[in-house]
Amino acid sequence: MADPGRSTVPLFTTMSRIPGGLMLVPLVLGSLIGTFAPGALDIGSFTTALFKDSALPLIALLIFATGTQVTMRTGGPVLATTGVVLLGKSVIPGLLIVALGAFVGPEGILGVSILALFSAVTNSNGGLWLAVTGQYGRARDRGAYIAGAVNDGPFFTLLFLGASGLGQIPFLAMLAALIPFILGVVVGNIDAQWRETLKPVPNIVIPFFAFALGTGIDLSEVVSGGLTGIVLGVLITPLTGGLVYLGYRFLLRRGNESPIGFAAGTTSGNAVATPAVVAAADPSFQAYAATATSQVAACVLVTALLAPLMASWLLKRNGAAAAIAQSEDAEARA
């Protein structure tokens, strides 16, 4: 007689063994559907709602649940970690791109425009960060998703190009991204039972919102981005993730746990729309928008593959992954 508690096909276990697999596998599957059968999920009702349109509400739920896990004891480390991620992933790279633009102009370098650089480099995939830190990180790392809420989309691109008159900085949009987290922090600190109830949320929602995000990635755009987009994606993880790694090691003094910083070396899926947003604000960038969009799409997929692999490999090599898991279990029992 079969054991009712035993999986016939261990899908969840297999996905969990892949670095960032809870997000990466559904993301790739969704992108295959979005590329080869884009209309398959448009039949309406619950099918479309769950598998195509659910990304934003499920990410919002994850953000709220993450906030409930941030207690007064962990709040300081969360803000410090968030600052380090923003510094290494957005601020320093953005300033370097500004300096490069002063020398080469908007055309950029080696077929990659300044618009493409800003769009791909200065933001990070918050969902992937939550997936990787949920598997290998601590509560302070998961709470640092705030960096992804701040740098997601066109915010930093518009900020760094603001001197060119590229429209208003969307502070209201940034505030809207932070409100679910703030409410989660409040609820988690006044009611421990809610904090405990929402602890399993990441494993539940990450595969579903990852699939929905994937349906918006057309692999033909990744291909059209060509070698320049792929090379840019390959460089983003070690360079920007490396800056966050250095912040972890020398500013946060996380020692063997510092490689978790490489999980920030990604490009957000929402960044694909950034070139069009910038071009709408300043038509002088219109000539670069189409190529930049395809290059950014390539970066989204390449960094989603590379960042979790690099972070997990270095964490395991340092022996930090097992130590973090044991420490988190001990804290949960305390």
Rank of each mutant, 00 (worst) to 15 (best):
Q69T: 04
I109N: 00
T71K: 10
S164I: 15
S113A: 08
G127M: 05
G111P: 09
L117P: 04
L87A: 12
T157W: 03
G101R: 07
A116P: 01
G137V: 12
R138T: 14
G67Q: 06
N151Y: 13
G148Q: 06
L130K: 11
L130V: 07
A80T: 11
I97K: 08
V121G: 06
A131Y: 06
G126Q: 03
A147P: 09
S164D: 13
M72Q: 08
L159I: 12
R140P: 07
S164H: 13
A163M: 14
G137M: 09
I92H: 07
T71A: 00
P77H: 10
P106K: 11
G94Y: 02
G137F: 10
L166V: 15
T71Q: 03
Y136I: 13
K89W: 08
I114G: 11
F160A: 08
A116V: 03
G67M: 00
L79I: 10
S90M: 14
L110Q: 04
A144N: 07
G83F: 08
G127D: 01
S119Y: 02
T133V: 07
G162I: 14
V91D: 08
G165D: 13
V132M: 07
N123D: 10
L158S: 10
L95T: 11
G162P: 12
A120R: 07
S164E: 15
A102N: 02
V121Y: 01
V84D: 05
P77G: 03
A99F: 04
P106T: 06
A99C: 09
W129L: 10
P154M: 10
Y136D: 08
G134D: 06
W129N: 03
L128G: 03
L161F: 06
I109G: 04
V150Q: 07
A116G: 00
M72V: 10
L110Y: 01
F118C: 07
K89D: 03
G127Q: 02
G67T: 00
L110G: 10
A131P: 13
Q69H: 02
L87V: 09
N123M: 01
F156V: 13
T82Q: 04
G126C: 04
Q69L: 01
A99H: 04
F156I: 09
E107I: 10
D141I: 08
W129I: 13
Q69A: 05
F118M: 12
G143A: 12
G88W: 00
L128I: 08
G153F: 11
G75Y: 08
N125R: 11
G134I: 09
V132I: 13
R138I: 14
E107Q: 09
G67K: 03
A116S: 05
G76K: 14
G153T: 15
G127L: 10
S164G: 15
G162Y: 11
G165L: 11
L117K: 06
G153L: 14
A139R: 15
L161P: 14
T68H: 00
K89Q: 15
V104K: 09
V78W: 01
G88V: 11
S124H: 09
A149V: 15
G162T: 12
